[in-house]
Amino acid sequence: MNRQFETELQGKIALVTGGTKGAGQAIAKRLADAGATVIITARNAPDSPDERMHFIAADLSQPAGTQKVADEILTRFGRLDILINNLGGSETPGGGFAALTNADWEQTLQTNLLAPVRLDSALLPQMVARGEGIIIHIASIQARLPLFDSTLPYAAAKAGLVNYSKSLSNEVAPKGVRVLTVSPGWIMTDASERMVDRIAKSAGSSVEQARQSIMDGLGGIPMGRPAQPQEVAELVGYLVSPWAAYLTGAEFTIDGGTVPTI
């Protein structure tokens, strides 16, 4: 059987949150390359717009932003077939629990857990009504390998997202909707490159040494490098394709072997 990559998502409508940069941008491109109509959302427009993408400006950490995106999609396109909850990140200070405020916790939970929960709630009913749909939650290996010094709320939120994703899959799989989780390790995005540069300058080291120090902080990456955004995108592209039709309720870790346990 020949796999027709360019047309396997033809006619599908997909949303990628946080789709203007990093892994989200790569995922959006991968779905568009496979023939899907792709909607992306973020607070700010992409630096290099892709004419194939429909952009919606919204802050999904706020309920109003989530509702805006859902309303515009259903009004303009009438339905959504694929939802990639990719938005996420951590802006909390280092220093462990004592350095964190209530605002740090609330903002991190809103962005990394409650935003996808609200978006699912707004867009799931039409999937269930049609008896088909795919939702993918982009979590993190920090759900199982937390770094308490700098990303305590982020790790907790992602752990909650993994648990929620599994529970949701059990509920909606009998109704025709597949729900999956993808948990990446360190991804070498533009933001990561800038972080490596900052560490190198601060420590007076080379970029290679700074990159190695980050991998050492994770306990090592057996493959010896972070993931490329396109590698994460390829996994997501497969999971939303017809070739993965029997997959639901599972978590797929893509971390180069970082998590040392089964």
Results as ranks from 00 to 15, higher is better:
residue 132 E to G: 11
residue 101 T to A: 14
residue 113 L to K: 13
residue 125 P to V: 08
residue 97 F to V: 15
residue 90 S to L: 00
residue 110 Q to T: 04
residue 96 G to F: 03
residue 104 D to L: 09
residue 126 Q to I: 05
residue 131 G to T: 03
residue 114 L to D: 14
residue 136 I to S: 11
residue 78 G to W: 05
residue 83 L to T: 02
residue 120 D to A: 07
residue 128 V to Y: 04
residue 135 I to W: 12
residue 102 N to T: 11
residue 109 L to K: 10
residue 140 S to W: 01
residue 102 N to A: 07
residue 129 A to I: 01
residue 134 I to P: 02
residue 137 H to S: 04
residue 93 P to C: 05
residue 93 P to M: 03
residue 118 R to I: 02
residue 79 R to Q: 09
residue 129 A to W: 00
residue 82 I to S: 09
residue 116 P to Y: 03
residue 108 T to Q: 12
residue 140 S to G: 14
residue 85 N to L: 09
residue 88 G to P: 12
residue 112 N to P: 00
residue 129 A to D: 08
residue 118 R to L: 05
residue 101 T to D: 12
residue 106 E to W: 10
residue 105 W to Q: 01
residue 113 L to R: 11
residue 79 R to W: 03
residue 124 L to Q: 10
residue 99 A to H: 06
residue 106 E to S: 14
residue 133 G to S: 05
residue 87 L to R: 05
residue 92 T to K: 04
residue 77 F to A: 15
residue 95 G to I: 05
residue 101 T to M: 11
residue 80 L to R: 05
residue 90 S to Y: 00
residue 78 G to T: 02
residue 75 T to L: 15
residue 134 I to S: 07
residue 131 G to M: 00
residue 74 L to Q: 07
residue 137 H to V: 06
residue 104 D to A: 05
residue 99 A to K: 13
residue 104 D to S: 09
residue 76 R to F: 07
residue 84 I to R: 03
residue 87 L to Q: 10
residue 139 A to G: 14
residue 139 A to I: 08
residue 88 G to S: 09
residue 125 P to N: 09
residue 101 T to H: 15
residue 100 L to F: 14
residue 89 G to C: 08
residue 94 G to H: 14
residue 87 L to E: 06
residue 87 L to Y: 00
residue 137 H to R: 02
residue 104 D to Y: 05
residue 138 I to C: 06
residue 92 T to R: 08
residue 115 A to H: 07
residue 118 R to E: 05
residue 115 A to I: 01
residue 80 L to M: 04
residue 80 L to P: 08
residue 124 L to K: 10
residue 101 T to I: 06
residue 86 N to R: 06
residue 75 T to P: 11
residue 84 I to C: 06
residue 139 A to W: 01
residue 91 E to M: 13
residue 80 L to W: 02
residue 91 E to R: 15
residue 120 D to V: 07
residue 132 E to I: 09
residue 90 S to G: 14
residue 74 L to E: 08
residue 128 V to Q: 02
residue 131 G to Q: 03
residue 73 I to A: 02
